[in-house]
Amino acid sequence: MNRNELFFGVDVGSVSTNLVAMEPTGQVVKKVYLRTEGNPVAAVQKIFTQLGREFAKAKVLGVGVTGSGRQLIGAILGADVVKNEITAHGVAALQAEPKVRTVVEIGGQDSKIIILRDGVAVDFGMNTVCAAGTGSFLDQQANRLNLPVSELGTLALRARHPVRIAGRCSVFAESEMIHKQQMGHRLEDIVAGLCAALVRNYLNNVAKGKEIQPPVLFQGGVAANAGIKKAFEDELGFPVIVPQYYDVMGAWGAALIAREEQVNYQKTSFRGLKFCEEEIKISSFECPDCANRCEVITVMVAGAKISGWGDRCGKWQRINTEATG
């Protein structure tokens, strides 16, 4: 396959790292979903190594990066746009369904809600520090029940009498699930109860005080779970839509924003696929120059300093920009 011109969007999340290659029309030509496994740099290198063969001849017009590791990966890639994941998800949802009024996104470590009216985001919410009710909790429970996480959903759909599980706190939820198991409830009923608890938790915390109006788009890795989707529909009373690229919406959004902002940067600063083979070193130190004691991050690629951040005064960022030009 050889496409001529492409935008790349990368979403560096806590659990997964995703990439989307997009035509200038907005059409996705390739999506990759990979587990981050605690090493975002290695994950991105792996993805681009895979892609290198496929898109060796393509011309890259722009690169957008989002997700919690966006700053780090953005620096290494030479991204043109580094955007927060809320904006990215909102933009992608609008592309998938221009009439969307609510976006429900449940990822590995965080979950969010975006309220849109007439094609513009007007409000959003995000879970607080606690990751209860997110993908990693489902992962954990699937592990404990010795099931692949991808099967939780189909299992939940087979439930006839879902049990009630308190979902406010994942620690309590887990002990309650164990209790229900010991009482002799069927596994599918417990899993369905877990899905319902997760949805209730989401609606009561993340979506608290927000008006959920259809069409609702359900995206993020957890949208693969049909049990959760059904629990949402039961709770809301109307269907929710899982878009085609539900698992890479953040990456798609980043690519779309890269396209949108192209007028501002004209030529991409993407460093090319060569970075896959480069040795990337990241170090941090505590700057002793003032009472803030900032933890400054320095990124070295092939022995040369390319970026750094974390300082509140901007001194190290300035030094770094001067060094790199």
């Binding site: 919690s68 927060n84 994941e85 809320i86 904006t87 094609g119 513009v120 959003f124 995000m126 607080t128």
Partner: peptide, 22 residues
């Protein structure tokens, strides 16, 4: 968490800017 704080702030400012633009 600095990350969560900045993410929310950026998203909010984006929301305001996009709203104005559109």
């Amino acid at each position: 968490g600095e990350a969560g704080f900045i993410t929310r702030m950026e998203a909010f400012l984006d929301l305001l800017k996009r709203k104005r633009r559109y």
